[in-house]
C-alpha cells in the first residue's frame, strides 16, 4: 500500500532528528487528517516541485500552482464583469462593485481574481485530502456541462430541483444516512430570480463550506468563499468550470504524487 507523505513524515519525526521540526498543538493527542508538525523552512519563497517535497501543503501559499490560472484578462474576455441592472442589486454586493455604467453594475475583476484564487486553492486542498466535492446549480443551460465536468474530475453534481431536507433530513428522504460532501461549489446561487438556493442554507446548517459564483443580485452572506462574477453567461460559466476542473485534477494528481513518494 503506498504511503501518504504524512505517514512518511510521521515516521521521520518519530525516529529521526527532531531538531529542525517545529511542533504546534502538542497537547492534542491524535490526528488522522492533517499534520500539525511542519518543517522549519521558509516554504513560501520556494518552488515546491523542484525543492523539498516534504513540505506540509498547508504551509505553502500556492502548493498546487493554481493561482496563476485566473487572470483579469481571462475573466474580462469571458464577460465575467457584467452584473445586473442597478435596481436588482443586493446591498451586500456593493463592496465587490467597480461602478455603474449606464444603469448596469460592473463587477471589480481585481477583487474577483483574488477571491477566485482563494476558492481554487481551497478546492484543490479539499481534493488533495480526498474530500467529496459537489457541484450545484439551477441553471438549466449549464446543467449538462456541469454534470460532464463533475464526471470528468470524479466528483458529484446536483443540478436538479433541490428538495427540502436532502441534507438535513436524510433518513426520511433517502432511507439511510449518507456521507455529506466536504465542499459544495455553487455555479449559480439563485433558486429563482429572487430566492437564494436552498442548498446554500442547508450547507451552512450542516457545516459544509461553500464556494459560490455570486452575481450582483445574489446574497453572498452565507457563502464561505464568494466569487463576485457574472453567473448568467455561457462563456464565463464554461471558464469557471474549466478552472474548477483543473484545480480538482491538480489536487488529486498531487495526492497521488505525494503518496508514491
Amino acid at each position: 500500500m503506498p504511503k501518504l507523505f504524512r505517514q512518511v513524515f510521521n515516521e521521520f519525526r518519530r525516529f529521526g532528528d527532531t531538531k529542525g521540526i517545529h511542533i504546534i498543538r502538542q497537547k492534542i493527542p491524535s490526528r488522522s487528517i492533517s499534520t500539525y508538525g511542519t518543517l522549519n523552512q521558509h516554504a513560501e519563497n520556494k518552488d515546491v516541485n523542484s525543492e523539498n517535497s516534504l513540505i506540509d501543503p498547508l504551509e505553502h501559499h500556492d502548493y498546487f500552482d493554481i493561482r496563476k490560472t485566473v487572470t483579469v484578462k481571462n475573466l474580462f474576455l469571458s464577460t465575467a464583469h457584467y452584473g445586473h441592472v442597478t435596481g436588482c442589486r443586493n446591498p451586500y454586493m456593493t463592496p465587490y462593485l467597480f461602478g455603474v455604467r449606464s444603469g448596469i453594475d460592473i463587477i471589480d475583476l481585481e477583487q474577483t481574481v483574488r477571491h477566485f484564487q482563494d476558492a481554487l486553492n481551497f478546492t484543490a486542498h479539499i481534493a488533495y485530502r480526498n474530500g467529496i466535492i459537489l457541484f450545484v446549480s439551477r441553471n438549466k443551460m449549464m446543467m449538462p456541462h456541469i454534470e460532464k465536468t463533475a464526471k470528468a474530475c470524479g466528483e458529484y453534481a446536483h443540478c436538479r430541483y433541490w428538495s427540502n431536507g436532502i441534507f438535513t433530513d436524510m433518513v426520511s428522504r433517502l432511507g439511510q444516512n449518507v456521507r455529506l460532501p466536504d465542499l459544495a461549489i455553487f455555479l449559480n446561487t439563485q433558486n429563482s430570480v429572487f430566492q437564494t438556493h436552498k442548498g446554500v442554507l442547508d450547507c451552512a446548517k450542516m457545516l459544509i463550506p461553500t464556494i459560490g459564483v455570486v452575481d450582483t443580485n445574489c446574497d453572498p452572506r452565507l457563502i464561505s468563499y464568494p466569487i463576485p462574477a457574472n453567473d448568467d453567461s455561457f462563456r464565463s460559466n464554461m471558464l469557471y468550470l474549466s478552472l474548477f476542473e483543473a484545480a480538482i485534477k491538480k489536487g488529486k494528481a498531487k495526492r497521488a504524487e505525494d503518496a508514491n513518494m
Binding site: I33, S34, L58, P95, R114, F122, A204, R221, P226
Partner: peptide, 28 residues
Amino acid sequence: LWYDVMEKFPPKTPPKFNRPLPPDTVKT
C-alpha cells in the same frame, strides 16, 4: 476535513449572516 484548510486560508470576509450593511457608495 476542511477545518485545517480553512484555518490556514480563511475567507476574506467571515461568512456571517448577521452583518452590517456595507456603505452604498458606487461610482458611476
